[in-house]
């Protein structure tokens, strides 16, 4: 499989702070590659290095098989990006902004062509509105349009659903899947909304404090048959005691200050629930949490943050 991005031993230091630490990963053509990590984990710094906005302290970046810093212009002609929030020229119209970034990408597109691009992100009817009159969601859509306007082969999206309403998030998700599956574009998407990445990514990397924690195909990283259930009762400590007495202690994942996390196979949920009811401790709530999110928290320092919060 053709490798579109090949990152080797990438490191970036900002004075005393090591933002990215010896990071290596590869992205295959046509893949949607999830880039996960908490705020400050080094996601944006890595994406900025992939766009040559930041120079690495050490390591190498190859895109389309070429060294990024020796072939910057050639590579960037085939790359579209959104970095964090899409800041645009507020005093210009939506159409004028798109025209500017198309031209900077080396594309001279006619107004009808640009309007077609705006229609893809649902902004055709706002083409002549000044950007300063647009909502955050509209700006985000326009940011995506500027990233796609020159028909790039590689798309780097740093938190692309920030500021979007639920429908907007669904639309962007569909767009990314279409870009990957129908148009064979390679997409690298960073997000803190882990369920977003789970729904669209083929593979992902999880980083923490600049280091790789885990990398692989989403389907291999967690068992879709398993889930984590959050159980709240009137007396959690007693409930744990009774679960242990019943010999089911292997289902207890973690005791938190306000709940118990149980790791269960989805098919076992009805029978386990019945058994818990029979333990005769009033159950306040019992619901399935997002499995990838728990997986993520178990791998990154968020776990420690949560533990600290719980204490």
């Amino acid at each position: 499989m053709e490798k579109i991005i090949r990152v080797k031993n990438l490191t970036k230091d900002f004075k005393e702070l090591r933002a990215v630490d010896n990071l290596s990963f590869e992205v295959t053509k046509g893949q949607v590659y999830g880039f996960l990590g908490q705020n400050g984990a080094g996601k944006s710094t890595t994406i900025r290095m992939l766009l040559s906005l930041i120079k690495p302290t050490a390591g190498s970046i190859e895109i389309f098989g070429l060294n990024l810093f020796q072939n910057r212009k050639e590579i960037l002609r085939q790359v579209g990006a959104i970095i964090e929030k899409p800041d645009l020229y507020k005093y210009l119209s939506v159409l004028e902004n798109l025209k500017i970034f198309a031209a900077m990408s080396g594309k001279r597109l006619s107004t009808p062509k640009l309007l077609e691009q705006l229609a893809v992100v649902g902004l055709a009817d706002r083409a002549h509105s000044k950007v300063k009159t647009c909502s955050q969601g509209m700006k985000q859509r326009l940011g995506i349009a500027t990233a796609l306007v020159h028909n790039p082969q590689l798309i780097l999206l740093d938190e692309p659903t920030n500021g979007l309403d639920p429908q907007g998030i669904v639309d962007i998700r569909k767009l990314i899947i279409r870009l990957s599956k129908e148009l064979q574009k390679t997409v690298l998407i960073s997000s803190h909304q882990l369920n977003e990445v789970e729904l669209i990514a083929d593979a992902m990397i999880i980083i923490d404090k600049g280091k790789k924690v885990m990398e692989g195909k989403v389907s291999e990283l967690f068992d879709p048959a398993e889930t984590v259930v959050e159980l709240k009762t009137t007396d959690d400590a007693l409930m744990i005691e009774k679960i242990k007495q019943a010999g089911w202690q292997n289902i207890i994942q973690e005791k938190r200050s306000d709940c118990i996390l149980l790791k269960l196979h989805k098919k076992d949920i009805p029978s386990i629930l019945q058994k818990l009811v029979k333990l005769d401790i009033p159950i306040l709530s019992f619901y399935s949490r997002h499995s990838l999110e728990d997986y993520f928290f178990s791998l990154t320092s968020a776990k420690h943050v949560l533990a600290a919060t719980d204490n």
Partner: peptide, 14 residues
């Protein structure tokens, strides 16, 4: 300040 510098410099312009 506007945030447009980073977007401009992701374009194929030295």
């Amino acid at each position: 300040n506007m945030g447009t510098l980073r977007l401009s410099l992701t374009k194929p312009v030295s």
